[in-house]
Amino acid sequence: MTIHKEGYTTIALSVLFIFVLNAFIDYRFADMTWLKWLIYILSFLLFITVLQFFRNPSRSFTSGGNLVICPADGKVVVIEETLEGEYFKDKRLQVSIFMSPVNVHINRNPISGVVKFFKYHPGKYLAAWNPKSSTENERTTVVVEHQNGTPVLFRQIAGALARRIVWYIKEGDTVTQNKEFGFIKFGSRVDIFLPLGTKVNLELNQVVKGGITVLAELA
């Protein structure tokens, strides 16, 4: 397991904060052993929490020409027909994956193809499980056209804790299934919009792994 590049700055700032805090406690409360040990323990837990959030575990990826692979770790919170109003402007099958702060937050391309549309939207920071987060929160929208001509839309959505969305793609790029397309920091959600009638291999509340779990099969 390695640490993702998006974590380098955050981890460095966390170490600096912990060092300054512990130095202050040692100087200001030198005689209060119990308080110093409490701060030591909390500092260690903070460091481990930040470190695990940016972990990048080694994985054996699942791939397939007609397979849609889960773009993120987390839990399936939505499987429903809905109106996608930004790009398709018609009904699509929506699958949403909620990522808690303890999940790996790397986002991976669910299919291979060409990026036909990309847009970043500034917005609010509603809780990621709120249905309005899909249209009101800070988010990106990506549409990749599969080699068979089927377009798949996927959307990074910031949550109540997530305050930065990172993406590595742009319109016109050719992307490869399971390669990283972005990262969301500290709690978030990814929505995927598929053509109606697509065979979905997931169930509500199922725990999934990005790059491993098969989300659906394209016709």
Rank of each mutant, 00 (worst) to 15 (best):
residue 100 S to F: 00
residue 104 V to I: 13
residue 205 N to K: 12
residue 106 I to E: 05
residue 182 G to C: 11
residue 195 P to V: 11
residue 76 V to I: 15
residue 13 L to A: 12
residue 177 Q to E: 12
residue 56 N to R: 06
residue 33 T to A: 15
residue 190 V to Y: 00
residue 128 A to H: 01
residue 136 E to C: 07
residue 48 I to S: 07
residue 134 S to D: 08
residue 207 V to Y: 04
residue 29 F to L: 12
residue 194 L to K: 02
residue 178 N to Y: 01
residue 212 I to L: 09
residue 158 A to Q: 03
residue 177 Q to H: 08
residue 161 L to S: 06
residue 197 G to A: 10
residue 207 V to K: 14
residue 55 R to E: 05
residue 147 Q to T: 15
residue 72 A to T: 11
residue 180 E to A: 14
residue 123 G to F: 01
residue 37 W to K: 13
residue 89 K to P: 03
residue 117 F to G: 06
residue 95 V to G: 03
residue 54 F to E: 01
residue 86 E to H: 10
residue 116 K to F: 04
residue 62 T to A: 14
residue 54 F to M: 04
residue 2 T to F: 06
residue 158 A to S: 12
residue 140 T to R: 01
residue 103 N to C: 08
residue 106 I to P: 00
residue 121 H to T: 08
residue 58 S to Y: 00
residue 59 R to P: 00
residue 68 V to Q: 02
residue 56 N to P: 01
residue 186 F to M: 15
residue 89 K to H: 10
residue 178 N to C: 15
residue 19 F to M: 13
residue 98 F to L: 13
residue 14 S to R: 01
residue 98 F to P: 01
residue 192 I to D: 04
residue 6 E to T: 05
residue 145 E to W: 03
residue 185 K to Q: 13
residue 202 L to T: 07
residue 20 V to K: 04
residue 209 K to D: 08
residue 26 D to T: 12
residue 1 M to G: 15
residue 156 Q to G: 09
residue 6 E to V: 03
residue 53 F to Q: 03
residue 101 P to C: 11
residue 85 G to C: 10
residue 126 L to C: 06
residue 49 T to E: 08
residue 116 K to G: 11
residue 214 V to R: 10
residue 82 T to A: 13
residue 130 N to P: 01
residue 109 N to Y: 03
residue 211 G to S: 09
residue 4 H to F: 02
residue 174 T to M: 11
residue 95 V to I: 15
residue 76 V to C: 06
residue 100 S to W: 00
